[in-house]
Nucleic acid binder design. Structure first.
Lengths: 328, 328
DNA sequence: GTGTTTCATGAAACGCATTTCAAAAATATT
DNA sequence: AATATTTTTGAAATGCGTTTCATGAAACAC
């Protein structure tokens, strides 16, 4: 910058002001400085800037790649979410630092803020680490999480309207006059528990005599879901006629397990998935599912975090959630 | 750091050395300093560090979210690649800055390096911007690209062995005694062209009388592929009996288009996809495809870039590529 | 024409850590 | 015990912008 100042025959502060579009500098001077800077391929050093400003304009986005790798990332949903976040951050000229800190190592998160590597965190997928996130947020960290808020959640959560999702699935099954429901998913995750609650509420409200069984599974992959489903169907006398799966991948797996058991999804049984991943639409048969507005999700996550960074309050929120009826 | 120095009753340089594990500091002193730093929740300011070091330990990863959004990211392949890169960078303690600069705006790329926002670039998907990348690399930018190298490519490319992929598909078709080949993809992308060349080479070598037609499509989505396929089948007198599609998504679309035309994939016709995305395996029928070692890809991209950053040479390379035979 | 505002610019300080170079302390050598 | 060597430590300079505060110039008021 000193060089540019010399070349432009002005002082360093003037160059700084010109480059940052400060109104304190005369238009003619600004033009002149900009021209020289451009001609010499000069770019302001971001690190010096960040050091001085104490603001990095960088958001750390945490994605648990490990667990997704384990699942072969069969579920592209989380990546669409990432894409949405990336776009929303880009619109605000914020840099996106992608990191995969240890699930439960709060220190790794703290370190990022303390060392001023980022201004705040967007955590994609809360998993089972509510406690860690709770503590992190309590320490004053600007933090927004994709997931589901509980009664006493002390941080800002943006998520699907899981309870509504459960209700929508329940309504659909009841419209189809189904009686033997199966909830397929691990309710130890709060998102999943809420979907279960929504389903149950609708059932209770319907007055019909409907049972709800639950099938938990250990792993998010297609294979695990298929095995669990097959195993389940083999053991039960009367198979379910309505399955609400925690993901589209799991729903597809159940469709196949049904088929192997001689049950045709969409005829003898209904199946609803979750997320509306692209392949749900072109699976054979196309899978009925709960769709969330991912684009809105990305925008929402980012805008809530920005609010926090500005010292304002950011309440948790849910995004638009709807049932997409297809052939199952 | 001054505060820590005072509290530890040593000087600032000593603290700096202790925290960076320098051998110049006595073990006892280091312990003591570390203890104080830990106790007071002190973390070295990364921005000051980067400023001083002139090395950021940050790699910018460029992903064209726009085009992927347009395609509804039906193809999760690129994200698996991102996951691989993220993991490899994490292992080396490098930060990953995810950015989506304008495809053709070389300035945005330059700016990132000039402003010391990152040490180098990993570009995921070269698309049609070979010229821009060529110029960028020629300007001395440390750059590694996922794609396919051409005759005169002046930058380091890591990619699938596309030519071999084409050969593998061709061999498969010939083994099945297919005669009317269709290459389904846009050969204006170099990766795709290479696959076409590989297929053609095998055909030429076989001595059999085999024709190869090509069906180009404008867009990577399932819908576009399905429409193109349906349209194609409607127009042709004799349908192809072997289709090599540029992606698994497109292959699945063709399976469905075939079905609508009364042709069963795997019986009257063979179809081979590319990438081996998870849903290829559980599509109905499971899709035969060309699989690449993504994990190796991530490692390779990163290690090549690190070599460049160390001033060494980094030749282009291809990763392990194989045929996965399934039902189509 | 003098006094007051307003505007534009620059000198110096600052943000935080690292590095160079010199000095001090500890250890080894004779 | 005195000297030579090695190991540790610290003062000051450095990397690069931004900000504060002061000054000079220009514009306005009377």
């Amino acid at each position: 910058m000193d060089d540019i100042a010399r070349l432009a025959k002005v002082s360093k502060p003037t160059v700084s002001r010109a480059l940052s579009n400060s109104p304190l500098v005369k238009d003619a001077t600004r033009e002149h400085v900009l021209e020289i800077a451009r001609k010499h391929g000069y770019a302001v050093n971001r690190n010096a800037q960040k050091l001085r400003h104490k603001r990095t304009n960088t958001i750390a986005v945490s994605l648990d790649f490990r667990s997704h790798k384990q699942n072969h990332i069969s579920d592209p949903f989380i990546f669409e979410l990432l894409a949405g976040v990336a776009e929303a951050l880009g619109d605000l000229n914020q840099d996106l630092l992608l990191c995969a800190p240890d699930h439960n190592n709060a220190d790794a998160f703290q370190q990022m803020l303390l060392s001023r590597g980022a201004d705040g965190f967007i955590v994609l997928g809360q998993g089972h680490r509510e406690n860690m996130l709770e503590a992190f947020a309590a320490s004053g960290a600007p933090l927004v999480v994709w997931g589901a808020a509980g009664e006493h959640t002390g941080y800002c959560v943006v998520g699907s309207d899981n309870y509504l999702g459960g209700q929508l699935a329940g309504d659909y099954f009841i419209r189809k006059n189904r009686k033997r429901f199966l909830f397929f998913g691990d309710t130890s995750f709060r998102e999943i528990q809420l979907r279960h609650d929504g389903l149950q509420q609708v059932v209770a409200n319907s007055g019909n005599e409907i049972e709800i069984d639950t099938l938990t599974l250990s792993n998010f992959s297609y294979e695990a879901a298929f095995n669990a489903a097959t195993n389940y169907l083999g053991k039960r006398r009367s198979p379910p006629d309505a399955v609400f799966a925690f993901s589209d991948t799991a729903a597809m797996a159940f469709v196949c397990a049904f088929r192997d058991a001689g049950i045709e999804a969409g005829k003898e049984a209904s199946i609803v998935g979750y997320n509306d991943i692209p392949s749900a639409a072109y699976f054979n048969p196309p899978v009925t599912t709960i769709k969330q507005d991912i684009h809105q999700a990305g925008k929402q996550l980012v805008s809530s975090l920005m609010r926090l960074l500005d010292g304002e309050d950011a309440p948790s929120s849910t995004i638009h959630t709807e049932l997409i009826v297809r052939d199952t």
